[in-house]
């Protein structure tokens, strides 16, 4: 099965998006707010690059969307009683989630577009991207790495029934810890290791280079390498966890609890 499950789960997620038009609204609220707040706050700080601020708002939205599709959707499936049927099928839950994560990460691109539009129309920001092609590649890398992280974190949603609150926490936590809109050096020292093992941190770094810097330097390549290494680790760890979960869930009967 493999690819086929991933594909059809991602198509399914897409249909579900279409069937519920309010997602557009739902998903764009927080990136819109974050970008707006940040744009107003940074208005008087000339050293800051507005394009980067706008983009940061957008990728925060992408992360939110990925988490919604990979993690929170498990809560919803549990609630509607479909999770048990997914589980009873020969397809692995991991692949199903992977498909959903991909779709929702891609749908999250809409956040980016939306935030850019708002910035241009409402705030008259001049969008300047130093390396457009690199930017697009970096964006693709971000999508991949967000999905990988989404798969890893989705294990929590499968195992825990208090996952509803978890969704909010994980979404916000990444915003805070990954220093998307401020340097990580602001954070308490003991949190920083966590920042370094989360791909959004590096995704933000890579995108910052692509948007701002005239020359792509070492920092960019370190970022790319870190995203690659970390994403692969997420997938491997996620795979291991899912192989355990398949058994664990049947021991604890958590498929039916919420």
């Amino acid at each position: 099965m493999g690819m086929r499950t991933i594909f059809s789960a991602s198509r399914q997620a897409f249909y579900e998006f279409l069937a519920r038009p309010v997602w557009i609204f739902e998903m764009t609220v927080s990136p819109f707010v974050f970008a707006t707040v940040a744009l107003i706050m940074f208005r008087d700080s000339p050293s800051t690059n507005s394009t980067y601020i706008v983009m940061a708002g957008g990728i925060m939205g992408m992360w939110g969307s990925t988490l919604l599709g990979a993690g929170y959707s498990v809560v919803i499936e549990r609630y509607f009683g479909t999770l048990q049927y997914l589980f009873a099928s020969p397809s692995s839950l991991e692949e199903i989630i992977a498909g959903k994560a991909l779709t929702s990460a891609v749908m999250g691109l809409w956040n980016l577009v939306f935030v850019f539009l708002i910035a241009i129309i409402l705030f008259g920001v001049d969008i300047e991207i130093a390396h457009p092609l690199t930017f697009l590649l970096a964006l693709g890398l971000c999508l991949f790495s967000f999905s990988a992280l989404g798969i890893l974190l989705s294990t929590l949603f499968v195992l825990s029934r208090s996952a509803a609150a978890l969704g909010n926490i994980l979404e916000f936590a990444a915003f805070v810890v990954c220093g998307i809109m401020y340097p990580i050096s602001f954070l308490p020292v003991w949190i920083r290791p966590l920042s370094y093992i989360l791909t959004p941190t590096w995704g933000a770094q890579v995108l910052r280079w692509a948007v701002i810097e005239p020359q792509l330097g070492e920092g960019f390549w370190i970022g790319v390498a870190m995203i690659g290494i970390l994403s692969c680790s997420y997938i491997v760890i996620g795979h291991y966890l899912y192989s355990r979960i398949d058994y664990q869930v049947r021991v604890t009967a958590s498929l039916w609890r919420f």
């Binding site: 700080s45 809109m181 401020y182 602001f186």
Partner: peptide, 8 residues
């Protein structure tokens, strides 16, 4: 708080 600190 951190965004604000960064900005102002």
């Amino acid at each position: 708080a951190y965004v604000a600190k960064n900005a102002g």
